[in-house]
Design a protein around this nucleic acid. Structure first.
Lengths: 364, 364
DNA sequence: TTGAAAGCGCTAACAT
DNA sequence: ATGTTAGCGCTTTCAA
């Protein structure tokens, strides 16, 4: 008596039961060969005669055989799944369209690969570290995307210790064994500053993301650098948590400065804060762009649909996702990989930026 | 020679290799019992003496044993994963914060369950049906969330045929074997209409979602019903695809109507169209809310951060996710379940709605 | 109450 | 080139 139970045996027992799925053993019997050979043929490996291979494939097709992923997973020790752990709080992330596009990009690479995306949110009840540990302990995924890099991010070491493959979105500021996919968003900020400087603005402020987050910090640094390069005085940089509320608060703070210090332009670190900032200015009777120019970052769809529409830095989140997925998959497959640098962000000029207002003195 | 290879044998071969994870066999040997008994003890089933059980648990703890999910999956034929297939196009979905909150809610139920969420996006290259079939063929998930129900939605039959468990977000208009979790959003629309009618508006228009989507259609129907109930004339209902661009187009159309037909208030089927509509009005020099009142739906964070801020219907997407997950998990566990009705949506009144402007004749 | 062993469906090492 | 079989780590049936 063999160890493998055939599908036919099963079906003869109970006609009611939905047709059991054929296994590799059924295919082997049908083709008149052994299980092992079927496995070889199906994973097209050398050592199977063309003729036999054809016969096996025909049998598989005829029986409608499809591999059982769980069984395969168990024997080859792979999940065929990639993970994304979103660590931001729900409120902050809810408004951010980045992940949708990113995920769409990731999935665009899956269409051919039979992979799947496991999404986890590090909610209060489920701490970030515990989430990664859980994913690793259950071997739910073969690799993870490390997004929203923080200063001195301990996830790099954690994921490494857990033995997971990974790619980082952006280059971490700690030793990392993982390849990265990055975009020079500093360049985008620089473009915004140069654009404003060319329009005659001399007091340009920045509403920054949290300095604990690498991209927030990098954008702020690029802002300062660009300011200096343009020969302008350093001005206010207000740190936020990237949320709309905080963007509004920062704007109020900036507009509350004395007439001689109030900025004539504000560079926001993301679109949502720019939206909120726009509303704050309008509410205060400050006309955008004539009294105040503003720029956003991300070029979300809504930036096109405000009045005035908002000048913003566009990056390609979809491509970011696609490239990251490809890189991670290659890493897992053991192929040699290199860091990838995405195409440069572009500044999309719209109605929210215009020439600097005349100076206060001239106006009075 | 036994069939089970012990961990210790492995480790003695190669000191470099990271410590191999203990298996149930290791625990059995350590506790001096059989594999089978360990399994019974660990899944606390009857038939194990308290003493032995304690010894087994102690061994497991001491060895740091944790079950191998893949092996368990293979033998019990469960994935311990739930799936969400997002079928909208990237552009439309990118701006919609619903899913983030919904997903957060879903995950909040996972913290205790060791479940995971598989997210798939039905991109053009990967058709929706194929996505569900793939998920089922690979048994990636034990059940799915059916969101964005369409008229005559064929996914209900498909998912049923594939043998997956499911919950529907809202009640489908086709025969369905699945439990549903719904919210009476028509009630939210009614509240908006009543609010506007009470403010003296008599020409209220509706910028609707696509009639092919159940919630888009339901809201439009509720709009008409509420209008009639308020004793008002039927007015324009413009259908859109829920996107900001389309919301802008619809608004332009409405504002372009002759003075005697132009609405004094517009009820939008979602916030993003309301944002776009607000911009269109402002651009046309139409003051919101004095010339035109508008209401949104979803109560997204941004509704609080526009000028004027937007009156909107709030629903609880997080709770929706949590309840759906709980229901789906119960279904999978074979427990009897009932449809669940979420708490009623509430109208959050802000600055975008005010008393109706005086009639054109009176004004001239 | 406990042990032994078959079985889940596949891969891969080893024979032939 | 092909067949045989152990093994992945767990659950579950059947004896004892």
């Amino acid at each position: 008596m063999t160890t493998d139970r055939s599908t036919e045996d099963l079906m003869s027992n109970d006609a009611e039961r939905p047709a059991a799925r054929p296994t590799i053993t059924d295919v082997a019997r049908h083709a008149g060969v052994s299980k092992g050979l079927v496995s070889f043929a199906l994973n097209d490996r050398p050592g199977v005669s063309a003729e036999t291979r054809a016969r096996i494939l025909a049998s598989a097709r005829e029986l409608g055989w499809t591999p059982n992923l769980r069984a395969r997973s168990l024997s080859v020790d792979r999940s065929y799944a990639l993970g994304l752990v979103i660590g931001r709080s729900v409120d902050v992330i809810a408004a951010d369209p980045f992940f949708h596009s990113f995920i769409a990009g990731v999935e665009s690479e899956f269409s051919t690969a039979g992979q799947v995306l496991v999404l986890a949110q590090a909610t209060p009840g489920r701490e970030e570290t515990a989430t990664y540990r859980g994913l690793a302990a259950d071997k739910r995924v073969d690799g993870v995307f490390l997004s929203d890099l923080r200063a001195g991010d301990d996830r790099v070491a954690l994921v490494r210790e857990l033995g997971l493959a990974a790619v980082t979105l952006g280059r971490p500021d700690v030793e990392s064994p993982f390849p990265s996919v990055s975009v020079d968003d500093g360049r985008g900020i620089r473009a915004a500053v140069e654009h404003l400087a060319a329009l005659g603005h001399r007091r340009i402020a920045h509403v920054a993301g949290p300095s604990t987050m690498l991209h927030g910090r990098r954008r702020a640094e690029a802002f300062t650098t660009a300011l200096v390069a343009a020969g302008l005085e350093p001005t206010a940089i207000i740190e936020t948590d990237f949320s709309a509320v905080d963007g509004a608060r920062a704007t109020r703070e900036l507009l509350g400065l004395g007439a001689d210090r109030r900025p004539t332009a504000i560079v926001y670190s993301n679109d949502h804060m720019a939206f909120a900032g726009l509303a704050v200015a309008q509410r205060a009777g400050i006309h955008v762009p004539h009294d105040l120019s503003i720029t956003g970052f991300d070029d979300t769809e809504l930036a096109r649909h405000t009045f005035p529409s908002i000048t913003s830095v566009a990056t390609d989140a979809f491509d970011w996702g696609a490239r990251s997925a490809r890189l991670l998959l290659a890493t897992i497959a053991g192929q040699p990989v290199d860091d990838v640098e995405l195409s440069e962000p572009r500044l999309v000029v719209r109605e929210s930026t215009t020439t600097a207002p005349e100076s206060e003195s001239a106006r009075h």
